[in-house]
Structures are given as structure tokens and as C-alpha cells.
Design a protein around this nucleic acid. Structure first.
Lengths: 113, 113
DNA sequence: CTCCTATATAAGTAAATGCTTATATTATAA
DNA sequence: TTATAATATAAGCATTTACTTATATAGGAG
């Protein structure tokens, strides 16, 4: 039996505040699919590296994503143990598919590692 | 058969941006329950009348709520025909119950009309 | 070690945000 | 009509935000 921990309005709205920004929402969508390194996200989202890094920092501070360094690259993935992960998931599955963009990335040989 | 309209990342994140503010999230929670006039929301949320009005304006502009004037009072309720209402609902049902606050409001005779 | 690549951080800045106070609008009632 | 109550709007302001550019850090390769 799973006991669902009660969430405060403040906690939930602070998560939604982070998702309420197009770029961060997209990042979340990508790292929900699989892990991505920073440079891949830079390509996918067409934004500067510092901009992406700063968004990732906020997501990491909120424990929405996890990072793992592999050589020069730092990979980010969604934290599926976040307190409101089940809510986040419900939101992310509503977004349009990112498959096209992933294929495009692969086609252009922009995948790292 | 219901056809679920595709939602863009931008549209969804703009809605989440509005919910990503504690006061507005609370307003949405209240008007999800039933209609409320502005002065009731002012009492419930303990904020100034202009502050509440301004939040309601944003929610109305985004078509998240509907207004209806009745005499001096303007009542707001959730717009259950919003494009992503089904997502909003999934979020709102996760919030802690507001029953206590409603009872308190009633006890103090602060209900309008 | 030195060089290079990936990433993070710092500082600066323009724009957006959420309040405040003051005032306008709208409807009811006298 | 005038007065009053509920709400909306305007203007001002402090804070936050999301970028930019420049620089720091960290690891791999030679």
C-alpha cells in the first residue's frame, strides 16, 4: 500500500513556477524521455550554453532533475523520486511529442559521447 | 468519442506560469469548488482587494475563470471549458482541502450576498 | 605539464512581476 | 440626485527573472 504524502499549495506552486517557463518545461520533457548532456540540450533548445546551465541549476536545486558527470559531459535526467513526480508526469505526457526533434538531432550527428 | 486537442508547450507552460504563484493557485482552488465574489476571496486569502482583483484579471485574461456580476458583487468561477481544464483539474485535486477555511469564513459570517 | 572541450558561475541589464496607494467605475439604496 | 459599497484600474516601486558576456572550473588528450 502506498501512502501519498500531502503536498502544500506552496510546494506545488513552486514546482509549477519552474514548469511555467517554456525552456524549462521543454528541458523537463526531454529529461523525462532519457538523459541528456548540456550540449545536447543547447542544440535541441537553440539557446546559449549559460542560459541552459542556469535553467538546469534551478531544476536541480528544486530536485526536479539529477545530474551525473561522465568525462567532460554532465548528464541530466528527471528525478522520478521527487515528491510530486506523479503530478509532473501528468503534465509532461500532455505535451506534443519530441520524437521529431530527437531524430533531427541524430540526423545532424549532434549527439554527444 | 472525444478528440483531445493537441496543446503546445507554450500554451501549457503559460497556464502553469499562472498557477505557479501561490495566491493565484489558491484562487483557482477556491473557484474550482464553487463561485466566490472578490470580497470573499479577499477574506480567504488575507490580501488587499486590488491585489486579488489583479490576480483575477490575469486568470480571466487567460480564460481560466469566468466572471458574473450580481448586483454590486462580481462572482468568479472556474472555466471548466478551458482547453487544458483536464490538466488543471489533475493539479488542483492534489492540493490540501480548503474545507476548514470555508467553515471559518462561514463561522465569521463573512459570506457575501 | 599544456591545450582543449564541456560546463558552471559571476556580473550586468532590460523586462516582467506582485505588491502598494490613490482613484475610477459600476450598481444599489436613500 | 447623492451617498455608499464592491470592484477595477492606474501609477509607482522594489524585487525577481531570464537573458547576455566574460571568466572560472573540471576533466581528457597529447
Amino acid at each position: 500500500m502506498t501512502i501519498k504524502t500531502e503536498v502544500t499549495t506552496e510546494e506545488l506552486s513552486s514546482v509549477l513556477k519552474l514548469l511555467g517557463e517554456k525552456t524549462r518545461m521543454s528541458i523537463m520533457q526531454y529529461v523525462y524521455e532519457r538523459e541528456f548532456c548540456v550540449c545536447e540540450l543547447v542544440e535541441l533548445l537553440g539557446m546559449s550554453q549559460p542560459a541552459i546551465s542556469q535553467h538546469l541549476r534551478k531544476l536541480k536545486d528544486a530536485k526536479l532533475v539529477q545530474e551525473k558527470r561522465r568525462g567532460n559531459w554532465v548528464y541530466y535526467k528527471i528525478n522520478d523520486e521527487h515528491q510530486v513526480y506523479y503530478v509532473i508526469e501528468k503534465i509532461l505526457i500532455e505535451l506534443p511529442s519530441i520524437e521529431n526533434k530527437l531524430q533531427e538531432l541524430e540526423r545532424q550527428n549532434l549527439l554527444c559521447d
